[in-house]
Nucleic acid binder design. Structure first.
Lengths: 187, 187
DNA sequence: ATGTTTTTAGTACCTGGTACTAAAAAGCCG
DNA sequence: CGGCTTTTTAGTACCAGGTACTAAAAACAT
């Protein structure tokens, strides 16, 4: 087997299983451990321990921020019962790989969670919505969602949200949100 | 400081940051490294390297499946251009902690991604939608989304989706999906 | 003062490496 | 075929972050 093809193979093995040690790889590719280390050095592939560590730390952050958020996006302004603004920067993992266009539900999630946050109630649930996607949003773009309560009657709130990228409207939605009394949800 | 309270503290430190080495902990708690190791042994807390490893491996599977999916939910039936069915089981991380009610956008994401998958095109984007949430969905429930194309004209598809839990309708949506030609998105 | 618990010190050893030197093997060219 | 280069292997010293163990010192309780 050629050096170059072995290196490609090794890269694929590591990608598919980052937990492989040099020892494992040496056995799999039936070369000496030194060859593996030379190859890794040439290709700037770090050792197993740091591969695992960066994996763990990379994911660690995401988990925490996802749990921390009841909201999708970062709340930059909120006047409960009136209006609010949230910002969401589209990252690669929110996009369709082929086009780098944000999946629609991230845009929706941002506006929906903002709409719910606006409602001054212990628990609020979305009843119906009408959404309109104006143009695709690409990876790296910063979506600013502005919401305000347009009507309110007893426990029903109508919330309008407009999401823009650099003042260009990319999405708008109208949400009918219900404030739920405690007896209903605490079953 | 007492032994027991130090151990509790140590446990919390490790929980909040699993990357701490015995050395780090010894410094933080200002005891010797041997004490830390005794404590870990008593409390059956594994060493940093294996903590990191199990973290990484635990999450490794999840990431891959999330990446593999362009869809939210599992596709159980799909006849492109006609109809499809997807199943999504609501887990705790999809719910509002207070109520254990699924956040609306997960239900939406399932139906929306199913609607897009139905459309026979390289790239499809959602234009507008009307959604209606019929009742809250709780953690553990299995949401079955059934979609079919109700109208089609040139590059526009109207997709209707009904999501049920055990034959009870929990959500319905109508999506206007656009099939996009390659020139538009490959900028 | 004595016994018990807790803490610290120290040593030998392990895994999964890095960094380096040097020799052996394989491939190529005229 | 020799001579040269590339590639591979061998081996050594060293490191981090440990395990496993022995033993002494310190803290405490009665």
């Amino acid at each position: 087997m050629q050096k170059s093809s072995r290196q490609q193979l090794m890269e694929r093995y590591i990608k598919s299983n980052p937990f492989l040690t040099d020892d494992d790889l040496a056995e799999i590719l039936s070369v000496s451990i030194q060859t593996i280390r030379l190859d890794r050095a040439e290709m700037n592939i770090p050792e197993m321990r740091s591969r695992v560590k960066t994996m763990a730390s990379g994911i660690y952050g995401k988990i925490r921020s996802m749990e921390a958020d009841e909201l999708m996006g970062e709340l930059v302004d909120l006047e409960v019962g009136r209006s609010g603004v949230s910002v969401l920067t589209i990252t690669d993992r929110m996009t369709l790989k082929k086009t780098r266009v944000a999946r629609g539900y991230y845009i929706f999630a941002q506006s929906n969670s903002l709409a719910v946050a606006l409602v001054d109630a212990e628990v609020a649930l979305t009843g119906t919505c009408k959404l309109s996607y104006k143009r695709p949003v690409y990876s790296g773009e910063k979506v600013v969602a502005r919401a305000h309560i347009s009507r309110k009657s007893r426990n029903r709130y109508m919330v309008r949200v407009n999401s823009t990228v650099k003042d260009e409207l990319v999405f708008s939605g109208r949400f009918l949100v219900f404030a739920i009394s405690e007896e209903v949800w605490r079953r």
